[in-house]
Amino acid sequence: MTDRTITLTFTPDFRTVDLVRAALQGICRELFEPDGGAFTFELALAATEAMNNVAEHSGASVAELEVAADEEGVVLRLASPGERFDSSAAAAMPDDASDPDGAEGGYGLALIQELVDRLEFVYENGRNVLTLYKRFNNEGITKEG
């Protein structure tokens, strides 16, 4: 599997995000980590946080999650049409303003940063595109044939 990309197109609401998360975990288990360990969990969590963000803030009616793998890791590209999303503001602001110590919200982007090896954000053709890259060898797993 060198060049194959799987694209999941979905409606960004919380319920569907959970389904896409389950599908992504299924794909990872099938392709890279049959026993569904830490790599799968963390990749799925990073994707969930990013998708929740789209569900909550973008107002988009459709979003796309593209899953691709090379020899060393997995690339996730999450694209959603809409106005440019200000990632720096989101990183600084807790999601829940009523929670002054930031205990309940605001983990999203910080979490993604902890969980993946590279994170890129671009706004192109009217779409917010967040690219996440996570390496296999981080968690000591190697890719199969």
């Binding site: 919380f14 799925a44 969590l45 205990a103 309940e104 919200g105 983990y107």
Partner: peptide, 11 residues
Amino acid sequence: FIDSSGLGACI
């Protein structure tokens, strides 16, 4: 599985 919203709910 748990995400940051789930974490928030625990807190």
